[in-house]
Design a protein around this nucleic acid. Sequence first.
DNA 1: ACCGGTCCCGTGAGCGCTAACACCCGTTGC
DNA 2: GCAACGGGTGTTAGCGCTCACGGGACCGGT
Lengths: 343, 343
Amino acid sequence: MPNRVTIADVARLAGVSTMTVSRVINAKGDVRDATRLRVQRAIDQLEYRPSQAARTLTTRRSHTLGLLVPDITNPFFPEIVRGAEDVAWERGYLVSLANTVEDNDRERAALEHFEAHRVDGLIVCSARLPEAALGAALRRHQAVVLLNRRVADEHVASLEVDDALGTRLAVAHLASTGHRTIGLLAGPRRSSSSSKRRLGYHDGIEAAGQRFDASLVEDGEPSEDGGHRALRALLARRPDVDAVVCYNDVVALGALAAARDLGRDVPGALALVGCDDVRLASLVHPPLTTLRIDTYALGRQAAELLFERLRDEPPRHVVVAPELVVRASAPSMPPLTRERTRT
Amino acid sequence: MPNRVTIADVARLAGVSTMTVSRVINAKGDVRDATRLRVQRAIDQLEYRPSQAARTLTTRRSHTLGLLVPDITNPFFPEIVRGAEDVAWERGYLVSLANTVEDNDRERAALEHFEAHRVDGLIVCSARLPEAALGAALRRHQAVVLLNRRVADEHVASLEVDDALGTRLAVAHLASTGHRTIGLLAGPRRSSSSSKRRLGYHDGIEAAGQRFDASLVEDGEPSEDGGHRALRALLARRPDVDAVVCYNDVVALGALAAARDLGRDVPGALALVGCDDVRLASLVHPPLTTLRIDTYALGRQAAELLFERLRDEPPRHVVVAPELVVRASAPSMPPLTRERTRT
DNA sequence: ACCGGTCCCGTGAGCGCTAACACCCGTTGC
DNA sequence: GCAACGGGTGTTAGCGCTCACGGGACCGGT
């Protein structure tokens, strides 16, 4: 590691002032073609790379975005990260990533860490912090986009999946295919998408002319294990359940395993609907009926919303609608017909 | 966004010099308890966060690691990223992520980007750049760990999966369960794990007393689509193939779909072995026989190796062995027995 | 001849920290 | 009594850039 090349070295070699070199690099102000060429040559020859740290110090722009996810290992997030990183890349920005690991302290600490690093903007996915703490932490950042969470702060943009609609669609689908006792694996209480799903479930049930019954709703962790446990608990209480809407696909996978363990045929004895359309969903057996969201596009849009904020445009609040994808775990035909078509 | 609080503000409020504040923050040098307390209170009151940019400028340490992956969307990588990020986090480091998208220009550009941002260290996963370009780019970084790639440069540490061993194990397993015409979906030529797999395949075939035949090897992109295409190409040329070892699980998934499309029963008419033991592998139908690697641990270890380099310890070259996980896509029993046990 | 304007480039200051040293003062040693 | 020492603190300079100026050269208009 030789001593770093600085802008002064380039300036000396090119026979100009550092300011001229700076102007060439940033394509700002007028520089004569001949000069620009000399500078360019010096840069190439010395393999000079401007220090982003020094630039950050003077311009107060780090050209870095912070991206906070609960857990990159959850198949919902890599696509989002990829989408956001692609957009950042196109704009010459770098993305710093932090996992909160579903831990409030770590979430808070990560937000501070990003602050110390002076990220220009922040995308926070599925924040779990309570409103007050989250609001306080975000207020210290210049530009923030919240994914699947809303906060009462005028300068924070947000991007949400319409989970209520999704769950409503799922319930409607199940009801229309003859299911009379539809349960809900509702996920973690503090998550905002969970409460939206509860809402959509309630509305969907009533819209289908059925009676809402709280004993058909079961909380649980958003993991395979959580889904497994939740379905067993639900079926123990309400063995008459003939269909279940799950918090997400991972939970649905756990539920699927539980159904198999309990000897319940899916979809014959129990129809299952997931959510997110993770790639897994189409590959398991039976393939999962689920609610599709284009997560890559979600990530891109989150970044776009952030750059809008960085250009000082007013924060927007975008809601995207999921789309029901019907597969074998909750097929289109009513149960009786389905039995006939089976070989 | 009010004006940023600086160290000078804290110093003024606490009635000391900025140097003393700095000493408190960095727990460096001696400060009287009473003074430390006053400074601490001032920091808390002003909610002061030291600017990492300024620190980077003076200390030449950014407390940031760069992490380069081909594509975070490939299920092999999130666990690695998570492992590396966890270790970085424990050490107070932030991780900047870049996807190369299997594009050499972007890979090169990302390395430069990281250089401009003065990351303290770099983890590069599955670099695709040709040796010369890669070496040149890496030489400009202080500390580098290469994952699944080796480079002739004494200061670069590396961490490799023994893919040759893995493939050998897979071939041995297939041969011992009665398969006589074993193919290989070898992945992208320029990838180093691909050449290691070719090697292991060759050795495995000969060790099993069979004859190596180049027409049984098929290249392809490391994606589902690539696997689909590759298997079709291979079977078109060699319809007699009765088992296939795949570049990774994602490719195996594509191959599985292709087999289904061609009406080939798996494992009845074609046994399939994947690689990586992505979670998907155990959930598809039939579950994939594959080579397991603890990717989370891999990510952690990569970061550990990097921190060793940052402490100026000599670079190490670690090789981890994969482990064969037998599932239904290439079961333990020889084909004939397997037919009987079917219901 | 003078003024204003545009193009091109340099000067000086300062972004917010910390390394290195200088300094002061109360001990301790002889 | 004075040197030597070390804990506690301040001073100075500079890390590598860019902002805000300023100013010379050269143009055209009056």
